[in-house]
């Protein structure tokens, strides 16, 4: 198993926003999803996941609602707000510009 990579500053917010973009998710599912999709490269510890979720909620980018989980337990589900969607689009655009630029530099040199 490859070593989990360190997350770039600020990319965690983007990953979380992306993870809840399609349908409401609870915290555990968000962490699992990011981990699985990234092939276990990106592992998100609880120590940073929940503070980040709360921070995004206070900023108004995601909204939390109590709901019923897949195993019929009460869980908090996070979904994207309109402001969150704008933020996500802005961050994605920024990210693709940045990563494209980094790739260009790496190919040239």
């Amino acid at each position: 198993m490859p070593q989990p990579a360190d997350l770039l500053q600020g990319t965690l917010d983007m990953l979380i926003l992306k993870a809840v973009a399609n349908e409401p998710q609870h915290g555990w599912a968000i962490a699992q999803r990011i981990q699985q999709v990234s092939d276990n490269v990106l592992q998100i510890g609880q120590g940073s996941l929940y503070p980040a979720l709360h921070r995004l909620e206070y900023k108004g980018w995601i909204r939390a609602q109590w709901g019923s989980s897949e195993n019929n337990r009460k869980a908090r589900f996070y979904s994207l707000t309109a402001a969150g969607r704008r933020q996500l689009n802005a961050e994605l655009e920024n990210w693709s510009r940045l990563s494209g630029a980094v790739n260009l530099v790496l190919q040239e040199i």
Binding site: H26, W28, Y50, S69, N71, R73, A75, R76
Partner: peptide, 13 residues
């Protein structure tokens, strides 16, 4: 609320 959320996370794990 925070406690309940964290509790759920552990149970799910």
């Amino acid at each position: 609320e925070v406690d309940e959320e964290l509790e759920f996370h552990i149970d799910r794990q």
